[in-house]
Amino acid sequence: MDDLRTDRLTLRPVSPADHEPLLALMSWPEVARMTGSWPIPADRDFALERCQRIDPARGFVFGLWRGSEMVGQMGILEGEIGYAVAPPHWGQGYATEAAQVLLDRAFATYGWGEVVGGVWLDNPASMRVLQKLGFENRPDTVGFCKARGETLLSRRFALTRARYDSLRIGAA
């Protein structure tokens, strides 16, 4: 899978060479606690596992790079989007910018009728990212957060292919 570019970012498929930058990203407790699967403290072996190439039939995961710095990671696997951005880069629009490119790739590549995403209720910034992209609310669910060691309520969102197409046409 090729690198992708936005005006400010290079999106590069993750590889084992990204192990240390990913570990650094996920070592921010405020980042790990917003995921479902990362432990606190971040685990080196888990980071290496997360840097393995993904079966392209399942989707993709990219590191978000600004120059030589990994500012985040984002993927769409089996129709579900997930992302993390380092706190020094919060509020700069990187997640929205990268997601637009990855949604373009996902809908052009896969036959998914929708892409979904879940956000813990105490993460309004991530909710705003999905809403800006055109995702619509779905019923809340619960999920286990490994970093917090507890089950939490998750706000669910979905972007259907039809809505995505209509938004892209309206943007042209």
Rank of each mutant, 00 (worst) to 15 (best):
D104P: 05
R33L: 11
V71G: 04
L4D: 01
E30G: 09
H89Y: 15
L11M: 14
W90I: 04
L64P: 10
I169E: 15
L4V: 06
T141P: 05
G118S: 01
L121E: 04
G75V: 12
L9I: 09
E30W: 05
L153D: 02
V85F: 00
Q73N: 14
E69R: 15
W38Q: 07
A57R: 09
A24S: 07
M70G: 03
P124F: 13
F135G: 13
P56E: 15
C145S: 08
R58W: 10
S68P: 10
R163H: 03
I40Y: 04
T96G: 09
R53A: 12
S15F: 06
P124A: 14
F144Y: 12
H19G: 08
K146W: 03
L121V: 02
R148N: 00
A162V: 02
L9Y: 12
R155G: 05
E69Q: 14
G118L: 02
V119T: 09
S166V: 02
W65H: 02
V14D: 06
S126N: 15
A106Q: 03
L130F: 05
A95C: 00
A125S: 12
L152T: 03
L130H: 00
G59T: 04
A57D: 13
E97R: 15
A42M: 00
W38E: 06
P13T: 07
A98G: 11
V115S: 11
L152Y: 07
A84Y: 02
S37E: 11
G134D: 00
R12C: 00
A98P: 09
T151C: 07
E150L: 06
W90P: 07
P39V: 06
T10P: 07
Q131T: 14
G82C: 04
E49G: 10
K132S: 10
D165A: 08
A84M: 08
